[in-house]
């Protein structure tokens, strides 16, 4: 069957909610979503039904920012600094890692084989954990606690390469570290300052940062997403922006900006290199598909809410977006 063409992207369902959803994972071969909410909980939602049902799972007591699913185990993190392992089938907690980080946890990335999970947090550490037993495998230190102007920094995102041997982490000021997962050593660093706006004249504060990362299928390139330079840091009125770097040569090979203003919160690189997909938003949301070989934009469109995360089905034809008070289901039709 030929790959679906992103130009045929259509919205098929919207589920309105009262909460803000920051992260989504999907139960394989189903429309059952696991979402991380600002109501402090992880929920399971069946997005395949018009009247979506919901089941409450882990309760962090504070904003939940990230959730991933490894087999039958849900792992979630949030502003409570904890990581919670949760048994999806039996709906019970497996373990809680209190003070997994010293500050709020921003994102989780699951290794392709499902055995390791990486967490990043505002203590500026990345930690790699054994999914099976919660043991910490590595603690990765490569990001500064303070920004160059002496404010606290933030560590937003992480992503594994498709072969699981490399991990990238990206912070507020545009510093990216690529790690060797086997031994926890730094392989390289790259700088992407265009995604960080420090306004030292008008407003004396900053906005932006690296919000999304994705390795190319062969692992040689790294896509880095966020928002470009912003004139007025009161809002997100800057161009949605992606840079692609050859990380081993520390060389930027391509960059592009979307039509929409806002921040690229999630990047997904198609495993056969058909496209790079990004979602995010400003006041509204957006999605784009970019051809990384021809360097042309394939398709971009607005989404009805600022979008924080997305997940694809196994056949890459259905997408589940989560964000501000809404879940949106889209399909790429043949």
């Amino acid at each position: 069957m030929p790959d679906a063409n992103p130009r045929n992207l259509r919205t098929v369902r919207q589920i309105n909610r009262r909460d803000i959803l920051f992260s989504v994972a999907r139960v394989p071969n189903t429309a059952r979503l696991l979402v991380a909410s600002n109501d402090n909980k992880v929920h399971e939602i069946d997005a395949g039904r018009d009247n979506a049902t919901q089941r409450d799972l882990a309760d962090h007591g504070r904003y939940v920012t990230c959730v991933r699913l490894a087999g039958n185990t849900i792992i979630s993190g949030g502003y409570d600094n904890r990581l919670i392992w949760w048994d999806l089938q039996n709906n019970r907690m497996i373990r809680t890692l209190e003070n997994a980080h010293a500050r709020q946890i921003r994102q989780l990335a699951l290794s392709p084989d499902g055995t390791k999970i990486a967490s990043v947090a505002d203590d500026m550490l990345c930690k790699i954990w054994n999914v099976a037993n919660g043991e910490r495998l590595h603690e990765l230190r490569g990001h500064q606690l303070r920004t160059p102007t002496n404010f606290g920094s933030m560590l937003y995102c992480c992503a594994f390469s498709n072969d699981g041997t490399k991990l990238a982490t990206g912070d507020r000021v545009g510093h990216v570290v690529i790690w060797d997962v086997a031994n926890g050593r730094q392989l390289s660093t790259i700088e992407v300052p265009s995604l960080y706006t420090w306004d030292g004249t008008q407003r004396i504060r900053s906005i932006g940062g690296i919000r999304s990362l994705a390795f190319s299928p062969d692992g040689t390139q790294l896509a880095v997403g966020g928002v470009g330079q912003i004139g007025n840091v009161d809002g997100l009125g800057g161009p949605s922006r992606v840079e692609i770097h050859n990380w081993s040569r520390r060389e930027r090979v391509h960059q592009f900006q979307g039509q929409q203003q806002g921040i690229v919160n999630r990047l997904v690189w198609h495993p056969r290199n058909n496209w790079l997909c990004g979602v995010g938003g400003g006041s509204n949301g957006f999605i784009f598909f970019h051809n990384t070989q021809t360097r042309a934009m394939i398709h971009q469109m607005n989404l009805p809410m600022h979008t924080h995360d997305t997940v694809f089905t196994e056949d890459w034809t259905t997408l589940y977006h989560v964000g501000h008070q809404r879940i949106v289901v889209q399909e790429i039709r043949p």
């Binding site: 404010f151 606290g152 407003r203 004396i204 900053s206 906005i207 009161d234 809002g235 997100l236 400003g282």
Partner: peptide
Amino acid sequence: GRAWWDSHAQNFESHQEMVPE
């Protein structure tokens, strides 16, 4: 005068940056 706190977007990160100061 400590300006500018007008956080119409990313309020929590702006305050995480500015309130500790």
